[in-house]
Amino acid sequence: MTVLVADDNEVAQRLCRRVLEKAGHKVLTASDGQEAVNIALGPAGAPDMILMDVAMPGMDGLEAMRQIKAQKPGLAIVIASAHSMASDRERFLAAGADEVLSKPFKLTDLTSVVDRLAVHKAEA
C-alpha cells in the first residue's frame, strides 16, 4: 500500500520512508500541506494513507487534512506531530484524524498504526 509522508523535516521524512519501505509499503513524500493536498487529490498514484505532520510552512497539516477529507473522506490520515500535549491529541481527532502519533515515536508504533489502518481499509 502507498503511504504519503508529509513532513517539512527532512530527517523525519527519511526515517519514515526507511521504516515504511522496510515494512513493504510504497512511500511518497511532501514537504508542506499544499504539496500533500496536491499529491493526495492528484490523478495518479493516489496514496492509501497519509502520515501528516502539523507544523509545516505555508499550509499546515490540519488545513491539508481538511481539504483532503473534504474530497476523500475515506482516505486514512494519521497525524504525526511533535505537538504532544494532551489537548493536542483531542484537537487532531476532532479535526478528522483517524489516528494520532506523537513525535518522537517508537518505530513499532509507526508500523502498527499503519498496519492497523491497512487492515481496516482492507475490511472496508
Partner: peptide, 11 residues
C-alpha cells in the same frame, strides 16, 4: 525538542 528527538530516537 520533540522534533529534534524524533530523528535521534528513530535512527
Amino acid at each position: 525538542f520533540r522534533t529534534a528527538l524524533t530523528g535521534i530516537q528513530g535512527f
